[in-house]
Design a protein around this nucleic acid. Structure first.
Length: 377
DNA sequence: CCCTCGATCAC
DNA sequence: CCTCATATCGAGGG
């Protein structure tokens, strides 16, 4: 913890984690209320084949049949066979519109605000509530009501002494729920959680812990960071030991613009010639570059990512000497990296499933006179 | 200290 | 069956 804030102040915080319920599917219900009564599934279609892709979100009606986020569309369809249901593609611009309206309402409540994603944010309510959890609950109810009244959107709120617990708590009484965890309940609350409930613990970390014989949050709380460091790395070890004791010092931080811009696409099955791949890389570059232009920024690092048939990821990156805002530069470098990757790793074109381009080390160039082709100095 | 690359997470 | 975008960590090499 590098922030200079006293422990005393840290422990008196009241943090909200606000999570919009089944967000994409609920957005669809907002513009088409008739969807409320039937299972609806919002999907990311990869275009590789008819119905290839995954479920992004689904409403609770669909969940009754076992449909879940990240599930292949084909599997979801099989679960809803013979059921009157609807499958829709994502419409991100529309979801962002709804999201901004809701986020604006939340921000108007006052203090430090951190938007984590399109459907999730944190807000510090310490001052407004004077560290009183009863007050905080009233604010949570009022916030839910404002959002519901103004845009017909429901959300779930976790109220806790830190971000970690607020985040876990918001998921407990979903949808349209409020869960309050006080400072004095923090450790007990954590010990009732499963290890996988801790944000930052995924399948890999879970498995490592299991192989160490660690099965519960209480098991972790009896370990030292030192004991876990070798297996998990310093950061995760620290996170886990603190979390298991109900502690999380991380602060709400106002997020600036993103630090990278990227796009990954899935190749059609019949795409095998280098010429086809080249055109795809160029179209990805175009889209990434448009994004960069809109933000009036230049990039210095670009990374090309290949995802192979066996879902293995291979990435190569290149740092430029100077920042660039030239699409030609982006194209040229992407293609040269692609060539290098294919030859040096002896990757044949037909085992490439997905291709991505990411640019990073971004820098604002608004105010520069030539945006089209800008080089530092 | 910078660069590159892979891993992991979670949306 | 297997998307997509972003952030962060850590190792290893210079």
């Amino acid at each position: 913890m590098s922030e200079n804030i006293s422990l005393n102040e840290i422990e008196k915080r009241i943090i909200f984690h606000i999570d919009f319920d089944y967000f994409y599917a609920q957005c669809e219900e907002i513009r088409r209320p008739e969807l409320r009564n039937i299972p609806s599934v919002v999907c990311v279609y990869s275009g590789r084949e008819e119905d290839s892709g995954v479920v992004s979100t689904c409403n609770y009606e669909a969940r009754k049949y076992g449909v879940r986020a990240a599930m292949p569309i084909k599997l979801a369809k099989s679960k809803l066979e013979d059921v009157h249901s609807i499958f829709l593609p994502t419409d991100m611009p529309y979801y962002h519109e709804i999201s901004s309206k809701a986020m604006r309402i939340i921000q108007n409540y006052g203090e430090l605000f951190e938007q984590v994603s399109v459907d999730e944010c944190y807000m510090d309510f310490t001052k407004i509530t004077n560290s009183d959890f009863d007050d905080a609950r009233i604010f949570a109810v009022s916030l839910q009501k404002s959002i519901k009244d103004q845009i017909k959107l429901t959300c779930s709120i976790g109220v806790a002494p830190n971000k970690l617990i607020a985040k876990i708590a918001s998921g407990i009484n979903k949808p349209n729920g409020i869960t309050v965890v006080r400072q004095e309940e923090a450790k007990q609350f954590m010990s009732n959680c499963r290890i996988e409930d801790i944000p930052g613990v995924g399948p890999k970390t879970s498995k490592k812990l299991q192989s160490l014989g660690i099965k519960t949050v209480s098991d972790i709380s009896h370990k030292s960071i030192f004991e876990l460091r070798d297996a998990l790395g310093y950061k995760i070890a620290t996170l886990l030991v603190n979390a298991s004791n109900g502690i999380d010092y991380s602060q709400i931080k106002i997020r600036g613009t993103s630090k990278q811009i990227g796009k990954i696409v899935t190749l059609k099955k019949d795409c095998t010639s280098f010429e086809q791949v080249r055109l795809i890389v160029e179209s990805i570059c175009k889209s990434v570059f448009e994004n960069l232009e809109n933000k009036r920024q230049a990039f210095r690092v670009l990374t090309l990512i290949l995802i192979l048939e066996n879902l293995q990821h291979v990435s190569f990156s290149k740092s430029l000497k100077l920042h660039s805002a030239s699409i030609d530069e982006l194209n040229k470098n992407s293609l040269s990296i692609l060539n290098e990757m294919i030859t040096s790793n002896s990757i044949s074109l037909d085992i490439i499933r997905r291709i991505g381009v990411v640019i990073s080390e971004l820098k604002d160039i608004s105010g520069q006179d030539s945006l089209l082709n800008y080089f530092e100095n």
